[in-house]
């Protein structure tokens, strides 16, 4: 994975809730990139559904969450609509997995993104990264801790 201190590589992907998302157009915001294998995993254990419940806690920390998988934008739109997600899902679809590869979280064998998290600061610098076992929802403890640590450095 890319390590803390590195510049987060720029990318543009189509988004479920809008037309497109470009990383470098989000300077001044903290970003949480949540790479995940696929839409439509079972609801009660689903990482994206879980994050949707706790967006306020990210917002309180001035952080914006985006989900990223290789599913296409129509699949993302259907999934997002079904789960009533209030944050964008980005389609790393064409060329397939290109952004996931750049972020070193692409599983070549499965043809899917790994389950991985990046926290990026206001200047586009990676501040925390984490690779989760693919079948484990990593929850939010690590993300919130990383955001806390950024507050402490800034102050």
């Amino acid at each position: 994975m890319l390590q803390p201190g590195m510049i987060a590589p720029d990318f543009t992907l189509s988004a479920s809730l809008g037309e497109s998302f470009t990383l470098s157009q989000n300077r001044g915001k903290r970003l949480v990139l949540a790479f995940y294998p696929a839409d439509w995993s079972p609801v009660c254990s689903d990482q994206m559904t879980f994050y949707n419940e706790m967006l306020d806690y990210f917002t309180d920390q001035r952080a914006t969450l985006v989900g990223i998988s290789v599913d296409g934008k129509w699949c993302h739109a259907a999934f997002s609509n079904d789960r009533k997600l209030d944050f964008p899902l980005l389609a790393d679809f064409e060329p397939k997995g290109a952004v996931s590869r750049t972020y070193e979280v692409y599983d070549e064998e499965a043809g899917e993104s790994k389950r991985a998290l990046y926290v990026i600061d206001e200047n586009g610098i990676i501040r925390w990264s984490y690779l989760s076992p693919v079948d484990v929802n990593p929850g939010a403890a690590g993300i919130l801790q990383a955001l806390d640590d950024m507050n402490n450095v800034t102050q």
Binding site: C44, S45, Q47, F50, M54, Y57, V136, N137, P138, G139, A140, A141, L144, Q145
Partner: peptide, 13 residues
């Protein structure tokens, strides 16, 4: 208790 749960690693119910 919600936030303490998040910070304690609750990831499902």
């Amino acid at each position: 208790d919600f936030e303490s749960g998040l910070r304690s690693g609750v990831n499902a119910t």
